[in-house]
Design a protein around this nucleic acid. Sequence first.
DNA 1: GAATGGTCTATTGTCAACACATTACAATAG
DNA 2: CTATTGTAATGTGTTGACAATAGACCATTC
Lengths: 204, 204
Amino acid sequence: MAATKPTKILSVKDQIAEQLRSDIISGEMPPQTKLNEKELAERFGLSRGPIRDVILQLTKEGLLISRNNCGASVNSVLDPKLQKLMIKLRRSIEEYAVTELNGSLTDQNIADLEDILASLQDALEREDYTEVTKIDISFHQYLIYQAGGEELVNIWYPYVMRMRLNYKRITSSSECVNEHRAILEALKAQDSATAIKAIKHNIK
Amino acid sequence: MAATKPTKILSVKDQIAEQLRSDIISGEMPPQTKLNEKELAERFGLSRGPIRDVILQLTKEGLLISRNNCGASVNSVLDPKLQKLMIKLRRSIEEYAVTELNGSLTDQNIADLEDILASLQDALEREDYTEVTKIDISFHQYLIYQAGGEELVNIWYPYVMRMRLNYKRITSSSECVNEHRAILEALKAQDSATAIKAIKHNIK
DNA sequence: GAATGGTCTATTGTCAACACATTACAATAG
DNA sequence: CTATTGTAATGTGTTGACAATAGACCATTC
């Protein structure tokens, strides 16, 4: 069999969730925007059932806020104190990940990460900042997943989402690629201390 | 108008979720147990819709694990390394909470907490350990909610659930009440350092 | 006998219609 | 004119029926 790149297969709900997350992160749906189930169902050509599932999921992720019988709306920015706490927690998780991964990354893993960095660079040059944000997240997610599997991704994800919600517009300079490259290089060199420093510097 | 104690009103889904959490924490549904939607729907006298919502919610909380088209099952215990990480993260959150709450608890808050401790004592004497666990959680939840609202509770909750999943049987000695009383006393005395120490001692 | 392929059943995913709650607005009483 | 109550419209919660899928079982082939 040809060693074709495994095409990611996503469930319907995951695709909808992905789309809505993009809309929220890009600022297309600012905080307080109300989500109408019927409307969304028509937009995606589905019934309300799957939409409701997605809304529940995004609510647990912290992007939306729902009240009984009153629907869901895009969550607003966090209290600065809570924001600081979230940054601290996310850092703890990512420091754990790079520590855990130190020396256990395969050549394939490194190649994958290089690919992600390449597409990050590409998106930056196209000035597609929504895409930049998504790729940025996927770089971190790759590390988290390798270190702790789906379980760890699930507890990590809400922090990223809330942080993204707070910095509406990503400060997308070329630093972005450099910061991530620094992390990758430290991991390749199996230099745990430098990797942690690089992660800390990237998460802010 | 009479100042009756406000009776907590829970949505149907929240009640189902509460029941399932109890079943899982009590060990009645050990890890790997498969959840059958139709079965559960009949048990609670509902259709599958709300049940599906609850399953999704508990999955996000980490109690269940779901795969596409294959249903959900009770999640298994964590890798010890991840468990240690979760304890660290939960401690960070609770330390934040007691620090934040220092000096800002109202008399009503303190009375509420005293009430919770009283029912904890009561449940212990009845040797109803599932109830003990639930009240234990509600004590902490009260603090978290006061410090950071629903938002903070939502990110805190998964840690508690996963920790409960790991210690199948609560080590329910009378220490349990004492540890919580120590936290409350430190808060009453507005002694932040002692409160943090007490929290740290309680979360393990 | 092991492996491949094809049914069959149990269970989940999706849908459209109905029941109910909430909100906004209009009608009425004071 | 203001406050309260009744009513209509909008949108969410729930339901039961239908479609699609995964896993088990059996037959067939090499």
